[in-house]
Design a protein around this nucleic acid. Structure first.
Lengths: 227, 227
DNA sequence: TAGTGGTCTAGACCACCAA
DNA sequence: TGGTGGTCTAGACCACTAC
């Protein structure tokens, strides 16, 4: 067989896995053999198999060889865009309203997530899509890490937009959960107790915690992923 | 400068982006120039830059060159393990209980997701962790695609486990949302109206729809992602 | 210790697309 | 149409690890 291009190799490997030529758990030929069989260079086979391993369909180990994953852990990729873009991509007008701005001691859960105990800048705000509440934001900011944010008029400029532009993070940590609406119910204009999708994000620049934010999306919000 | 390995190249590029040597939106040198500067082959630079582009930090276009992404769309990867493994990984005993098994016409939403109108196999079941309800499963199966499942005693064998072993899917579609507990409240042993994290998954084998499943997780369930 | 995947190299050709 | 990234090749060396 003579294939052309690493994607063709990938397709053929996928076909064999799927056709049970190579059943789950079984070892497949090594790269050199496959390269010979497919009539391509080993690097081409390597590219194809690495992509499949990254997707979780193959397990690869030096010396042990490559095996079809027994329990393919499907990995779905969730892109986390800036809310403004997410809303505008739906053809809706984006709006932002700052609700509160204080300095305060954060709740224990936030202190733990950030690893900080001192007082932090606390913002609550509302993201609007076509003038309707889209998400409620509860944010704590480590001003020691980004002192410049104190000079910004956050009533006008979205804190998240300022942060992505001025304080890029190197590490982020996301938690998705569902909560019954509490204090967010009022600003979101919904009944207390409604089920809300909540995204909690903590970000660091190296070892320095930057911000903790909790986004509570209006009821009915759906996060979509593929594969 | 002389670097060694594509990860070292990646690190250096990241450093420059982060240090604002290459601010957001700006073009960075082409691969050949970087290869010369770093003292590596162009393929090595290519490997590093492709990884960064895949991560959303760079935008690459032929002829136009490579630019630092203006609005880095962070992509979080959510691994969707088999529930049994997720539970056992926490050191808890996994349990499974089939609640109902019927043939029926699916709700319109399910018909639409699968693109099928005929009657389907309908299962509801409960996943248990240490004998406590972990998630409620509502599943519709296209028996035309997997007739063999009718020969299986689903009271004993988890439908999902049977499907992953016998009917691999080539395409999947996930939706995450939050719902107030309805009929699931009873089996889950919780109050009606509690906020539940819901994962809806539709899977196909090529163009053939296999199954639609809705998992409602017990309150407090947290899905974790990194970066 | 030997076999396997991981990676690098130098060179080459090609597809795409902005100028 | 020329410059850029995308990819392939043949060969090589290395790192890891099962045996």
């Amino acid at each position: 067989m003579s294939l052309s291009g690493w994607q063709a190799v990938q397709d053929e490997v996928l076909r064999r896995i799927h056709a049970r030529d190579w059943p789950p758990g079984s070892a497949i030929p090594n790269e050199a053999d496959l390269a010979r069989e497919f009539g391509v260079a080993r690097a081409t086979v390597n590219r194809a198999l690495q992509a499949l391993a990254e997707a979780g369909l193959l397990d690869r180990k030096r010396k042990a060889g490559t095996r079809v994953a027994l329990h393919p852990v499907r990995k779905a990729t969730l892109s986390i865009p800036i809310l403004r873009h997410e809303i505008e991509a739906r053809g809706l007008a984006y709006g932002y309203r700052l609700l509160t701005r204080t300095h305060a001691t954060a709740p224990v859960a936030v202190q733990a997530a950030l690893g900080l105990t001192g007082p932090l800048l606390h913002l609550t705000s509302l993201h609007l899509a076509a003038d309707r509440p889209y998400a409620h934001e509860d944010r704590w900011i480590n001003t020691d890490a980004v002192p410049d944010i104190l000079t910004v008029d956050l009533a006008v400029l979205n804190a998240n937009q300022w942060l992505v532009a001025h304080a890029p993070f190197t590490r982020g940590d996301f938690v998705l959960t569902a909560l019954n609406a509490g204090p967010e119910a009022g600003p979101l204009g919904i009944a207390a107790g409604a089920a809300l999708m909540v995204l909690e994000r903590t970000t660091w620049d190296g070892a320095v915690p930057i911000t903790w934010v909790r986004l509570a999306f209006a009821p009915g919000h759906r996060m979509h992923m593929v594969l």
